[in-house]
Design a protein around this nucleic acid. Structure first.
Ligand code: ZN
Ligand code: ZN
Ligand code: ZN
Ligand code: ZN
Lengths: 134, 134
DNA sequence: TGCCAGACGTTATAGCGTAACACAACGGCC
DNA sequence: GGCCGTTGTGTTACGCTATAACGTCTGGCA
């Protein structure tokens, strides 16, 4: 088992991300935790660094924000994870993308490229906003 | 045909990106064009905005940098483009990812998500650096 | 000629992320 | 318990990334 004990700061940042319904920027997290004694961005970034390493949190490169992992229990090992980000409501859905992962792995094998980290992010409209936006 | 006439600033920024062997940040572009009269970030960002809209330039979200398109003639219409970024030498390869595109399109169709823009970026080691790094 | 959309120049400001330093807390080990 | 390396913390300061807001200028077209 991988029962990791988080420190106070790490736990606070993680809780903030889990409580949020949308991704949060590091500075938004900072503001939400000022009541808990947070004063500087580094406190947030250091906690995020650990949470990212543990796989409990993901970074959304295209919007410079962070989300709690939707399914932190099972490692998303070699089946890459992807994100669908709604440009209207900000909602994010995390999903596995095995077909995409396979295609990219094939290309990498042919090109001799050794991937260390893969980013797949879709920006667009979620079903609800797509219906509402008519 | 889509022979677009670029303005002076747009042309200078595009030339700077084409001349570079690696992606450039907006501020690096600014520094390289100071001799041409560039003084403020906005001059670069405005030119980039247009070049991105024209599809002549791509933005690499994971490293906040920009590259000239490798094959600007044929639109990469519905076959998504992906990037392999070497963490050691900074080299970037742009490639089409039809299998990944299909997989993501399938998921989006099932989830009711309408993608507007898709980001696929692999960070890792290129063949040369992988061999050298032993 | 008059108009207008788009590009341009400038200043200022907002947002994202890290360097550097010193100190405290934890845990293994003897 | 006392030692010591590792990890986390708090704070200040700084650098990089991106946009807001304003006014001006140009080029194309009725
Ligand atoms: Zn996850
Ligand atoms: Zn939505
Ligand atoms: Zn391209
Ligand atoms: Zn390389």
């Amino acid at each position: 088992m991988s029962e990791v004990k988080l420190t106070r700061n790490q736990g606070l940042v993680f809780d903030a991300l889990q409580a949020a319904e949308a991704p949060l920027s590091a500075y938004t997290i900072l503001d939400r935790l000022r009541g808990e004694g947070f004063r500087a961005p580094l406190q947030v970034y250091r906690a995020l660094e650990k949470l990212l390493a543990l796989g409990l949190v993901h970074r959304l490169e295209s919007i410079n924000a962070f989300v709690a992992c939707s399914h932190p229990h099972h490692d998303h090992g070699e089946s890459l994870v992807a994100f669908a980000i709604c440009q209207t409501c900000g909602d994010v859905r995390e999903f596995a993308a095995p077909a995409a992962a396979a295609g990219l792995r094939d290309w990498a094998a042919g090109a001799g490229f050794k991937p260390a980290k893969t980013t797949i992010e879709l920006s667009g409209l979620c079903r609800a906003c797509s219906a509402a936006g008519a």
